[in-house]
Design a protein around this nucleic acid. Sequence first.
RNA 1: GCCCCCGUAGCUCAGUGGAUAGAGCACUGGCCUCCGGAGCCAGAGGCAGGCGUUCGAGUCGCCUCGGGGGUACCA
Length: 554
Amino acid sequence: MTPTADLVRDVVAAAVLKAADDGGWPEAARAAPVEIERPKERAHGDYACTIAMRLSRTLRRPPAEIAKAIAASVRTDGLVATAEATAGFVNLRLSPAWLGRQVDAIVREGDAFGRTDALRGRRVQVEYVSANPTGPMTVANARGGPIGDVLANVLAFSGADVSREYYVNDTGTQVEVFGRTLAVRYRELFGETGLEIPEGGYVADYVIDLAKRIRDEDGDRWRPLPIEDQAPLFAKKAIGWLVEQHRATTERFGIHFDAWYAETGLVASGEFADALEALRSSGHVEERDGAIWLRSRDLGEDIDSVLVRSNGIPTYFGVDVAYHREAIVKRGFDQKIDIWGANTHGHMRRMRTAMAALGLSEKWDVVIYQFVRFLHEGVLVKMGKRTGQFLLLDDVIDAVGVDAARWFFLQSSADRQLDFDFELAVQQSNENPVFYVQYAHARIASILRTAAERGLDAEGADVSLLVDDAELDLVKKLLELPELVAEIRGTKAVHRLTGYALELAGLFHGFYRDVRVVGEDVERSRARLRLVQAAQVTLRQVLGLVGVSAPESM
RNA sequence: GCCCCCGUAGCUCAGUGGAUAGAGCACUGGCCUCCGGAGCCAGAGGCAGGCGUUCGAGUCGCCUCGGGGGUACCA
């Protein structure tokens, strides 16, 4: 279904051309883009166009006069019922008959409602969560989960062939430190004392549990090995377990990844060497102090970036360049979208230069989300796996449920920092707005059950009987879904969906208050029932995109 | 120092350069003979500050103040 705003825009654009013909306006006026917006004030109609104010200067006429000419040229025999000029705005009202027909269209489309083929044929990879596999999943890593998942849903909804990917950072310094910590803990289990957790090591208790698991499974067979040999061995084992745990937690959170891509393979497979070669041929690579650098300064950065350290080991940055290149060039994704935390800001800038050097800038996009902090006993705590100061995603799901937890992460803009007060979240979980929306759906299901019991059938209902404000306002809100999906495709502001769901639920509750659906007038009841079905379809589509259940009762 | 994000109601947050800035929670007062009261209605309460750009600024630019993040041969 084409977004209503687009249809309205076309109608107004045609009116502008007609007014231009009639008034002998210059070519510049005909070429001006027509933008449509939704007024906040209902007295100003359903849609408004501000082009008259923009044209005022070119035409050297007062906006009101231009608006009047345009309004008079708007066709009012179909989609638009009235067009009037007020204070330089062209205010448009949709035709009730047209709106009624959309109710039927929405019900017929069912789970296709809101979908488009705007991105058909495009292969898009969305990479998200990708939490370090050196510890359990916390609410900090988790924020990217719902954001990436819902963005992937929106892209798939728009016809794209979407692959959801989790990048497993299973190499590097952090893994070495993690392994050494494990080795220390393992040795301690056998009574060794005086061992020290390495600098910047993982002091958290879960590492002891992992060490115990190694002991329980393998006993003392690794005891003869020196720490240097134990560390990589233990790290590999533990990361395997932790990745499984991340998989279980994300699945539980309603997130299914199509691919778990391990960083380790990139160097061994020669992928890294290929990427380095590609960067070399871009002419922005040089060797200095025994290391290999990307001359980021050539590409607008303040400092250069190391791709390979002087010890011959590639940096995380270098490997990540190879990873991105592999996804786009080798696996053939038309677009790769990363959902990253705010702490990767510096990395993102370096990546930008590398992608530019490779000529891949157009195919790569990043959504940065701000951090989640949590309050412990009323005090803000910065989360860190190493320190053991963290709040587990699993604990949050246990306490408030999947729906409320997802909603929490999706209700605010990614640009905004989140504070999570666990006690407050549990205490307020019954008041989570998600239930307000779900309640609307349950209420709809109940109405439909009642109607069925009374033998009322909405099929073939006369939708032209829908004329009340409460009815038409609801229809208009339903029709916003395709517009919203199109918008999110551009802005990636997935949190708008939860806001829309709340508005939709609120309007439905108002509709329920104002009109009786199952009543004495059978034809009117049938028409209203049709509208209730359309509301259910729409609510299901939104909740589906957000990844929250649509209960029949609660 | 430099770079990025944020500052909107008591609290948690929406708000596409447009016309009188919205929800939820909390607070006050109402509403079940009747399709679900996890609901509805009413009341009270706000754009951190300043200067610009614009016909028009919560929204764009600059500055100040405040919060967070980044600025490694870490990941």
